[in-house]
C-alpha cells in the first residue's frame, strides 16, 4: 500500500512532464479560443424597443435615425447610426442606459429600469441550451 495516497501534493508528483505540458497546452488553447471567439460576434440587423413591457418599435439598424420614446419617468432618446444603437439622452436619474453605450451584436441589450425602456438587438437565438448531451 502506498502511503499518503490522499495527499494532493503526492498526486501532483505523479504527473509526468508530458502531462504537465498537455495541461498547459490545453489551458493556452482554451484561453486563446476565448479571445478568438469574442471577436466573432454576430452583428444584428434589426432592433426592437419595448416600453413598459410592450413592444413599440421595430427598427432596421441599417437606417440611421433618431427616436424618442415616452417612458414612465420621461423621455428616452435612441439613436441608430452605422448599424449600432445607443441611448443618447434619458430622463432617468442614474443614466445607466446612456452609459451602456453603443450595442450592435445579436443578444445585446440596453435596459433603463426606472423609465421601463428595453432595447434589444434581434436575431436568431442560439438554441444550444436546448441540446442536452449525455
Amino acid at each position: 500500500m502506498r502511503s499518503n495516497q490522499n495527499n494532493f501534493k503526492s498526486v501532483i508528483k505523479l504527473l509526468t512532464t508530458g502531462d504537465k505540458l498537455l495541461v498547459a497546452m490545453l489551458i493556452i488553447l482554451g484561453i486563446t479560443s476565448i479571445f478568438a471567439i469574442n471577436k466573432k460576434r454576430l452583428p444584428g440587423e434589426t432592433c426592437s424597443v419595448e416600453v413598459s413591457g410592450e413592444k413599440t418599435h421595430h427598427l432596421k439598424l441599417s437606417e440611421n435615425q433618431n427616436l424618442c420614446v415616452e417612458g414612465s419617468m420621461g423621455k428616452t432618446s435612441i439613436q441608430i447610426k452605422d448599424n449600432k444603437v445607443c441611448v443618447t439622452h434619458s430622463d432617468c436619474p442614474e443614466k445607466i442606459c446612456v452609459r451602456t453605450g453603443w450595442i450592435s451584436n445579436v443578444g445585446q441589450i440596453i435596459v433603463c429600469v426606472p423609465n421601463k425602456v428595453v432595447i434589444k438587438i434581434d436575431g436568431e437565438k442560439q438554441d444550444f441550451f436546448n441540446v442536452i448531451t449525455q
Binding site: V23, L26, I27, L29, G30, I31, S33, I34, I37, K40, L42, Q126, D127, F128, V131
Partner: peptide, 20 residues
Amino acid sequence: LIVQKIEIFYLMPVMILSSI
C-alpha cells in the same frame, strides 16, 4: 448534425477548460 451553426464553438473554451 443538430445545431448546424458555427456559434456552437463559443462553448469551446468552457468545454476545454472544464474537461481538463
